[in-house]
Amino acid sequence: MLTLALNILDIVQNSIRAEASTITIDIGESIKNDFMDIRVSDNGKGMPEELLSKVTDPFVTTRTTRRIGMGLPLLKHQANLAGGDLSIESHQGKGTSTYVTFILGHVDRQPLGDIAGVMTILMSANPEINFLYNHKTDTGEYRFSSLEIKEYLGIGDFNDSHLLADIKEMINENLKDIGVFDIIKS
C-alpha cells in the first residue's frame, strides 16, 4: 500500500466488520511540530483483551471475528518506518480506536494520498454508516460528515457518480484551503 489513505481505507474495514454505525477518521498534521497523527475510531463491538494484545501480529487470526490480518501490522510497520507508532484501544460493546503517529517530514513517511476518494468510496459502499472525517493543520480545520450530507440533500444513499465526484471535489477544495499539501491521486 503506497499511501496513508489506502491504509485508512483498510483499517476502516475492521470497523465495518465490527458493525459500527459511526466511524470517525481524525487526521492531524503540524509542520510546526513536525508531527502527524491519524485516529480511526468506531462504535462497533470492540474486541476482548487477549485479542487486543496480539492484534498487530500478522500471524494471529480468528475465524469467528475476522477482525485482524495484515492491515494493522502493515500500518504499524509504516508508522515505525517514519519514526512513529501504532496503538489500539478497544472496549467490548463500546468500540475500537486505532491511533497512529508519524514524523511529518520523515523521508519514509507515506504521502496522504487520495483521502477524498477513500471517503467517497466508503460512503457509497456503506450508506448506512455515518462517516466523520476531521482534518486539522496549523492553519485550520475541516470537518466532514456523511450523515450531514444525506440529511442536507435529503437522500438515502450515494449511488450517484456525479454526486460522488462533487463530494470528492468539495473535500479536496477544503483540504487545500487548510494547507494539506500531499494529496495525490493514487
Binding site: 450530507i149 442536507y152 462533487d166 471535489e169 477544503n174 484551503d177
Partner: peptide
C-alpha cells in the same frame, strides 16, 4: 464554480 460547502453541493445537484 468550485464546490466548497454543502450549499454548493446542493446547487450543483
Amino acid at each position: 464554480s468550485q464546490i466548497k460547502s454543502l450549499a454548493d453541493l446542493k446547487k450543483k445537484r
